[in-house]
Simulated assay, not measured.
Amino acid sequence: MQGREVDVLVRLGLLKLVSGVSGLTPDALPESFSLNFSRLRSVQAEIQKIIVISTSILIFRQILSSEQPCRRDAGIEGIVETIIDISRDNDKVTDDNILQTRKAMMARMLAKSLQAGDAVFERVSRAVYLAFRGIVLGGSGRQLAEMALRRVGASSASLTKRVVKEAEVLVVAATVSLRVHGPWYATLIGNM
């Protein structure tokens, strides 16, 4: 097996480990990565935050578009403009019932959408995974990350920057591990 193939498999394997819904534990981690447990757990926590942020943006966009015309493919800037427009409308802002209804609806939708098996959760999780995968595999990764996040309406410079930063942690961990355990990985993969 060629070195590049092993490198790609190790990177993708790490990404699979940290993109799991359940928390990463030392027992679930191959011994060759045990020294990187805290870094990998931190990346997993960041992936989960990005999923929550992306899901929140998607839900907020749906609520805003139901209340006021808002382009369906609006990005964060479009959502902010719509929020400002709604804020300027004093009748909507001062009506406590409307605010409470909106708040309750968003809380219900977000809670439902952050459960494994939910269609929104699966779609957002997949997009975030693909964004990370674009960076982990290199090449035009940043563009791939932006495209993946855009598919669920969560494309923003700040989210893409977070994805890039965390994915680079995985790349470094994979690279170092490959330097130390490369022959072992090649033998293991070759025997599969």
Results as ranks from 00 to 15, higher is better:
Leu149Cys: 04
Glu77Met: 03
Leu188Gln: 10
Asn191Glu: 11
Lys161Arg: 12
Val171Trp: 10
Gly141Ser: 09
Arg126Asp: 14
Ser32Asn: 12
Ser22Leu: 04
Val136Glu: 09
Leu40Ala: 03
Gly20Phe: 00
Phe37Cys: 09
Gly153Asn: 01
Arg133His: 04
Leu17Gln: 03
Glu31Asn: 01
Ala154Thr: 05
Arg4Cys: 01
Pro183Ile: 07
Ala173Thr: 09
Ser156Asn: 05
Met105Phe: 00
Ile50Gln: 12
Leu14Pro: 14
Met105Gly: 02
Tyr185Ile: 04
Asp27Ser: 11
Ser22Asp: 15
Ile47Leu: 11
Ile86Gly: 06
Val171Ile: 15
Leu149Tyr: 10
Ala74Thr: 01
Leu188Phe: 12
Ile51Phe: 08
His181Met: 11
Met147Thr: 11
Val176Gln: 08
Ile189Gly: 09
Phe60Asp: 02
Ile84Gln: 01
Arg4Met: 15
Ile79His: 02
Leu15His: 04
Pro26Gly: 07
Ser156Phe: 13
Glu46Ser: 11
Ser32Met: 04
Leu170Asn: 13
Gly75Asp: 08
Glu168Pro: 08
Met1Trp: 06
Ser177His: 07
Thr82Ala: 09
Gly20Asn: 10
Val152Gln: 13
Thr187Asp: 13
Val8Ser: 06
Lys103His: 06
Leu9His: 05
Val176Met: 03
Val80Ile: 14
Ala157Leu: 07
Ser34Lys: 15
Gly3Arg: 00
Thr55Gly: 03
Ile51His: 08
Gly13Gln: 02
Leu170Phe: 06
Ile135Val: 11
Thr55Leu: 01
Gln115Ile: 05
Ile51Lys: 10
Glu46Gln: 12
Ile50Asn: 12
Gln115Val: 03
Val8Lys: 04
Asn191Asp: 14
Arg151Ile: 07
Val180Met: 11
Gln100His: 06
Ala186Met: 13
Met147Asp: 08
Phe60Pro: 00
Val124Trp: 07
Gly141Ala: 12
Leu64Gly: 03
Asp27Val: 05
Gln44Glu: 06
Ile57Val: 09
Val164Gly: 04
Glu166Lys: 03
Ser56Pro: 03
Leu178Asp: 13
Val52Met: 09
Arg4Asp: 12
Ile79Cys: 01
Pro183Asn: 12
Arg108Ile: 04
Ala74Glu: 01
Val124Glu: 10
Gln115Gly: 05
Ala186Asp: 04
Ala28Asn: 11
Ile83Lys: 02
Glu67Leu: 08
Glu81Gln: 01
Ser125Gln: 06
Glu67Cys: 09
Gly141Ile: 14
Ile63Val: 13
Ser155Cys: 03
Gln2Ser: 08
Leu9Glu: 15
Ala127Arg: 08
Ala173Ile: 09
Gly190Asp: 06
Thr101Tyr: 03
Lys112Gly: 00
Pro183Lys: 00
Ser113Asn: 12
Phe121Ala: 02
Gly23Ile: 02
Ile57Asp: 02
Gln2Trp: 02
Gly75Asn: 11
Asp96Ile: 10
Ala104Tyr: 00
